[in-house]
Design a protein around this nucleic acid. Structure first.
Lengths: 338, 338
DNA sequence: AAAAACAGCGCAAACGTTTGATTAATTTTG
DNA sequence: CAAAATTAATCAAACGTTTGCGCTGTTTTT
């Protein structure tokens, strides 16, 4: 029953013309007469002709496909980002293939390899937590496959990237808390190996010193981002000689653990919490953070995709300019509870 | 700088043998001698040979790619499901391409077309809310592209699908509420056009009548699933002559709106709410639903992917058997507060 | 009326890989 | 020792499409 798909050759045979004419006819090439063109198009339609993409891609050496490698699709941030990427890609008639590194360096290396074999026209990457070497991306250069990093980016400038400035976002957050009158502000930071932790800490310090306050290192504690780790950190604050009245949490998950713990101890009202947005509904919580750093995943995905498509279409990239795009993140203040 | 990728032809030229021998050598074909084989492999490695996938796919007429069409990637359920799909696909060395219908029928039709042009080996689909005709999938048959529907499935049996039995899940939910002593139970259902709404209603009715209670149609109200719609529905319950003491919400979003509204009216403690799980952190809410119907998105994605891969590998599908897989959904009871 | 321009189409190569059929050289067998 | 079997490699076609070039016949320009 499954008839082999119609090909250009077949149309040519039936019409007693050459395949090249059929191809040109279908593409409205000027050198094909109007009558022949119409005959071709009609027959094509009536035979349900569908161009064989694989053949075209092979022939052109382009795939009209962009690859996306990210740590975890099930994380809200990434699901929004890739949703934006797909939306942009489809506008330009590109297809998206993706794969998850599950925050594993080896897996990431494999995936880059696989994407290269698939001959994607370009690659969008949010690097895994494990990743500290970046050779696997260099190979892509020699194949002329552009790469744009987003959100989780390598710590150097000579790559294309889109990211949020967590540093300036943190400054905003701490400033906000200072303006609310807080004088002792704790920060639950991530592991010190993470670049994102560094940025947060730098932002914290800048805001503190800019406001002519003394920076107390013991108010910034590193944490493995688990529930237990969060509780440990919380305990350090509770026992601190200058017990903080506000806390900047590494992300919404940490904030969630923190709120849960503080509620249990019945001290939740002693603290203002600021967090970095991951979870869409955290503001529905009863004792939700007073403010959130919004990182605009949709926008980041959108920009990264557009930059990549630009790079793909730019003639030949001997222009040694790198797109370093910073998406300004905003502090979203939750409307105050009555 | 970007050297053209090495090809089999080139290796053949350098080694003064034929391309076919190189191909066979690389694939450990028995008819190539051990010495030649090694020479081939060594040279291939030293030249960084990478098979040109596009060429292979074209040649074989297979793409080792499965397509996924779903309504909204940013919905938690789907992001988990596709995450599972990718995990399964990569195990079998398949690649995943995906696209979002944004719950739009026309878009869905286009995407099916596009996937077909891409010659995906198989298709996984969760249909859009808009979709009531299904011709666009029939075409795929003649191209021998198997389709497996998941979660949002067409309302007939002669297709492959994986889904949850919302009916039995609803029975469990209502039974649970009845056992807790509730005698008047409201249901905020979705639009009546949705199959999912029908299932919920059927389950509700079955549980009610099985327990020898009288079914009151006015306790099941349809809703457009927006916040306003939810409030309307809530008001109907509040003004009901037999004011319900428990409510089954269509999903977590509805539950969220409901909780927010009831809190505002300060009547939240008058109701037990049961919902269908969409949001991972809803149980962190202060007045969270007492129970949730878990629909196991990861499992559904996993099963759907495996069925599809089975179908792809099954010789020729003249076996008129359809996979109709039901993933039992469970009622997850939230641990009682304090 | 010759030269130039052009319209409309076909030829053939090319993209990189795989694979059935074939050949040539070597070894085994009765 | 001739015939058969085995081994090792080659040939050539094929997958479907695109595209530079060339060819013919007609129309326009000088």
């Amino acid at each position: 029953m499954q008839s082999k798909p119609t090909t250009i050759k077949e149309i040519a045979r039936i019409l007693n013309i050459s395949p090249s004419s059929v191809s040109r006819g279908l593409h409205d090439h000027p050198s094909i007469g109007a009558v022949t063109r119409e005959k071709i198009k009609q027959l094509a339609k009536s035979l349900n002709y569908e161009p064989n993409n694989a053949a075209i891609l092979f022939q052109k050496g382009k795939t009209y496909t962009i690859g996306v490698i990210l740590p975890e699709l099930s994380e809200h941030f990434f699901s929004i980002a890739i949703s934006a990427i797909e939306d942009e890609a489809i506008k330009k008639n590109y297809t998206v293939i993706f794969a998850q590194s599950h925050d594993n360096y080896d897996q990431e290396v494999k995936l880059v390899e696989k994407m290269k074999n698939q001959r994607v026209d370009g690659l969008l990457v949010s690097i895994s937590k494990d990743t500290s070497k970046f050779d696997h991306f260099e190979k892509l250069n020699s194949f002329n496959i552009p790469v744009v990093f987003f959100d989780r980016i390598p710590p150097f400038k000579n790559v294309h990237y889109v990211a949020c400035s967590l540093e300036s976002a943190t400054i905003k957050a701490v400033n906000y808390l200072l303006k609310k009158g807080h004088r002792s502000i704790g920060m639950i930071n991530g592991p010190s190996t993470l670049y994102a932790s560094e940025e947060r800490k730098d932002g914290y310090m800048q805001a503190i010193t800019f406001n002519r306050l003394k920076f107390d290192p013991s108010l910034v504690v590193n944490c493995d981002l688990t529930e237990e780790g969060t509780i440990d950190a919380a305990n350090q604050f509770l026992n601190h000689k200058r017990k903080p009245t506000a806390i900047v949490a590494f992300n919404d998950y940490v904030a969630l653990f923190l709120i849960k713990y503080f509620k249990k101890l019945n001290v939740i009202n002693d603290f203002d919490i600021v967090s970095y947005a991951n979870l869409p509904i955290i503001s529905y919580l009863d004792n939700s953070p007073v403010a959130s750093v919004e990182q605009y995943p949709y926008l980041q995905g959108q920009k990264a995709a557009n930059i990549l498509l630009d790079l793909i279409h730019s003639p030949n990239s001997e222009n040694q300019a790198y797109y370093n795009t910073i998406v300004e993140s905003d502090l979203i203040v939750n409307e105050v509870k009555e």
